[in-house]
Design a protein around this nucleic acid. Structure first.
Length: 116
DNA sequence: CGTGTGACTCAGT
DNA sequence: GACTGAGCCACAC
């Protein structure tokens, strides 16, 4: 069993993967949110790098999107990411997610206020 | 150990 | 709404 080796990655990477794995189906999360849950609210960029290097297929990296509901990237196969999200019930329009506000996880508790 | 790069984010124009 | 510049972080070389 243990075909995987999560221990070979750094702590931060392990934490990021853990967060993404916790994202339920039909839900999406932004890189910044993952970074924050991972303990580095400013490491959105690093999270993107980790996803690009994610060697763990158990991680639904397709549920990780950029801020403002943008799809972001997917190793050049953005179309696949859109299809995967759509297959989970997420409304995707081109490179933009329409219902990301209601599908962002964890539930931000509601909509944003006048101030970001 | 310094530099460059990238599936990012924010603020300003 | 779109583009630009600057900031921030981890990893490969």
């Amino acid at each position: 069993m243990m075909a995987k080796d999560p221990n070979s990655r750094s702590d931060f990477v392990r934490r990021v993967l853990s967060v993404v794995k916790r994202v339920p189906p039909g839900r999406v999360i932004t890189y910044g949110m993952v970074a924050e849950l991972a303990g580095r609210p400013r490491a959105a960029r690093a999270v993107g790098n980790i996803m690009a290097s994610c060697g763990d297929r158990s991680v639904p990296c397709h549920r990780v999107i950029a801020a403002a509901g943008r799809i972001g990237g997917f190793g050049g196969n953005i179309a696949m990411k859109q299809a995967l999200l759509r297959a989970e019930g997420v409304r995707v329009a081109g490179q933009l997610v329409r219902d990301w506000r209601e599908r962002t996880w964890p539930a931000a508790g509601g909509r944003r206020r006048t101030n970001k």
